[in-house]
């Protein structure tokens, strides 16, 4: 069974239609890359899947793990294993990263009827997660993302992902702002978290990330629709020919898989 099935999804923001009929199906164990020009709606799709109330869904359906995803508030989506690594992680002055991570972890555990962990247990648990993204423990004592460098914010997103162990991770341009080493670390993190029962959607502009996180499918989002889908070689072709090649003349592909 597919993990998520998006059908004819339409969404608006400030009364402007951004998503104009998205079809996309992702099975467990797969990695899908979503590429496309600036402003084509990639982040909108990601935010809509995470449940951002700033976006209004005006049509279509999303079935996730057999459930009507669009009917769930964002916190329940997260508790059911959806995770969005934000293109622009949000700064929350006054809330420590450690407190935030533990609160999130405990909320998800609680939703699954599991015991909450105390700060000491959590500190042990964090040690290995920090190592995974090569982050210093001192980052935990700082306010969430406040004053973090661009790359530190992105690592912090992956750290949260490592803590929450999602079933469907959506990474929105997680590579932007990362140096080569960090890129490898983040990609390693994602690869290590990969399991047969989870899936990843990687929104990216750069083929270079896909050298590290190898996708099973590549989709090109243009003007609110998926204009073309293919295998990992599609990314190389795009790198070579640019998005014009997709928008001008090439047949519009149906959703993958």
């Amino acid at each position: 069974m597919s993990l998520i099935e998006i059908k004819d999804l339409h969404a608006t923001v400030s009364d402007k239609e951004i998503l104009k009929g998205i079809d996309l199906t992702v099975d467990a164990g797969e990695i899908h890359a979503v590429m496309g020009p600036n402003g084509s709606g990639k982040s909108t799709l990601a935010q809509v899947l995470a449940g951002n109330p700033a976006y209004e869904v005006t049509g279509g359906s999303v079935t996730y793990d057999g459930k009507d995803l669009l009917a769930l508030p964002p916190e329940e989506r997260a508790q059911h294993g959806i995770f969005l690594a934000f293109q622009y992680p949000v700064e929350i002055p006054g809330v420590s990263n450690a407190y935030f991570l533990r609160a999130a972890y405990n909320e998800v555990r609680k939703a699954h009827g599991e015991e909450e962990v105390d700060p000491l247990e959590f500190a042990d648990f964090m040690e290995e997660k920090l190592a995974l993204v090569d982050m210093d423990a001192s980052m935990l004592n700082r306010s969430v993302n406040q004053g973090f460098s661009g790359g530190e914010k992105k690592r912090n997103e992956i750290l949260q992902m490592a803590v929450l162990q999602p079933r469907l991770a959506i990474l929105d341009e997680t590579e932007s702002g990362l140096d080569i080493d960090a890129l490898r670390i983040v990609a390693d993190g994602v690869n290590k978290l990969k399991r047969p029962d989870n899936a990843t959607i990687v929104v990216t502009h750069y083929q270079r990330l896909l050298n590290y996180i190898v996708p099973d499918f590549v989709h090109v989002l243009v003007n609110g629709r998926i204009a073309k889908s293919g295998g990992k070689e599609l990314a190389l072709e795009l790198e070579d020919k640019g998005y014009d090649w997709v928008t001008s003349g090439a047949p519009v592909g149906a959703g993958a898989a």
Binding site: Q79, F86, A104
Partner: peptide, 12 residues
């Protein structure tokens, strides 16, 4: 910020 917290599973 509220959405960011909720998107991590934190109740409203």
């Amino acid at each position: 910020a509220l959405f960011y917290l909720k998107s991590r599973g934190i109740e409203s």
